[in-house]
């Protein structure tokens, strides 16, 4: 029982950091530019596909990593320069529709190039196998590595935003946009870079998730909606909130998936219990979101005030 709990907690953390990488980019972009990006899930997919395709072509994990991260960041910056830039002054509905259109477009382009069949990605050999986190609980090394990388990135993001000059501009840009512009900062460039950073984080999440889940068209949208839940629970525009909420959502979702179906099986038929349990446990985090909204409509750690 304890073993199972430890294992599930680690799985929860792994989902949590993946969600954090996505939510951080989404909430950063919203906090600074005031835009909502439905195509954020496409960037996650781009990271995963570029990494998988490069790995298949070159067999080099380093190149695949660079292709995944770089591809997503470039795609993000391109997206910003071609489309998003024209939407900053518009209302959120226009932003939603344009980025919805973008995500349809990108998804279809990937299904033309790569087809509908899912790709499977190998785990690098030096991360295959498992380690004992707690005595007697073997856990896949690769999944553990995701957790470590995710936490390191979270730390790096914290240092970047609260202790560097760029971070200072980012923080200033989110609260006093016009003042930053008046002080002579190239806001256009700053925006493109922030968008690129958000895209890079999404791409990193996507390429790391590749070997765990399957790489296929539409993978981004499923997790995007979970990311929205995270952002709403954490408080829109707040990176600290996104971290806290991502961890909570990751742990709660994983725990429900692990424990609800077996519990249903104690009084139901096995196949029906699996189906219903799967459905009920995916409801859990939405109910959590509803609960948070009842108590704190602006999220757990709202960005301003």
């Amino acid at each position: 029982m304890l073993n199972l709990a430890v294992e599930q907690a680690l799985n929860g953390l792994q989902l949590g950091v993946t969600l954090f990488l996505l939510a951080a980019g989404l909430t950063l972009i919203f906090g600074i530019m005031g835009v909502i990006n439905i195509a954020h899930g496409s960037l996650y997919m781009i990271g995963a596909f570029f990494c998988a395709a490069t790995l298949a072509a070159t067999k080099s994990f380093l190149l695949a990593l660079l292709a995944g991260i770089g591809g997503a960041a470039l795609a993000g910056m391109l997206m910003e320069m071609l489309v998003m830039r024209r939407l900053y002054a518009r209302d959120h509905l226009d932003q939603v529709l344009a980025t919805f259109g973008l995500s349809l477009c990108v998804n279809e382009a990937f299904s033309i190039v790569f087809g509908q069949r899912p790709l499977y990605v190998d785990i690098p050999p030096w991360l295959a196998g498992s380690v004992e986190v707690v005595a007697g609980v073997p856990y896949p090394t690769y999944r553990l590595a995701i957790v470590v990388v995710g936490l390191l990135v979270a730390l790096g993001l914290y240092l970047l935003i609260s202790h560097t000059r760029i971070g200072m501009l980012v923080r200033a840009g989110s609260t006093h946009r016009d003042m930053v512009r008046a002080l002579g900062v190239d806001v256009r460039l700053l925006y493109t870079l922030v968008f690129g950073l958000g895209a890079l984080l999404a791409g990193l999440a996507g390429l790391m998730a590749g070997p765990v889940y399957t790489v296929q068209v539409g993978m981004g949208e499923q997790i995007l909606i979970l990311t929205f839940v995270v952002v709403v629970i954490g408080g829109l525009g707040s990176i600290r909130g996104a971290f806290l909420a991502a961890m909570i959502v990751g742990l709660v979702d994983t725990a429900l998936r692990a424990f609800v179906p077996p519990w249903l099986k104690t009084f139901m038929e096995a196949s029906a219990a699996d189906a219903l349990g799967g459905g009920l446990s995916s409801l859990g985090i939405y109910l959590l979101m509803a609960l948070v909204l009842l108590v704190k409509p602006r999220g757990l750690l709202p960005a301003h005030g």
């Binding site: 024209r86 349809l104 990108v106 382009a109």
Partner: peptide, 13 residues
């Protein structure tokens, strides 16, 4: 959907 997505982006812009 590729064409529809592209048309959508252009119409909004």
């Amino acid at each position: 959907m590729f064409a529809i997505g592209a048309i959508l982006v252009l119409v909004v812009l």
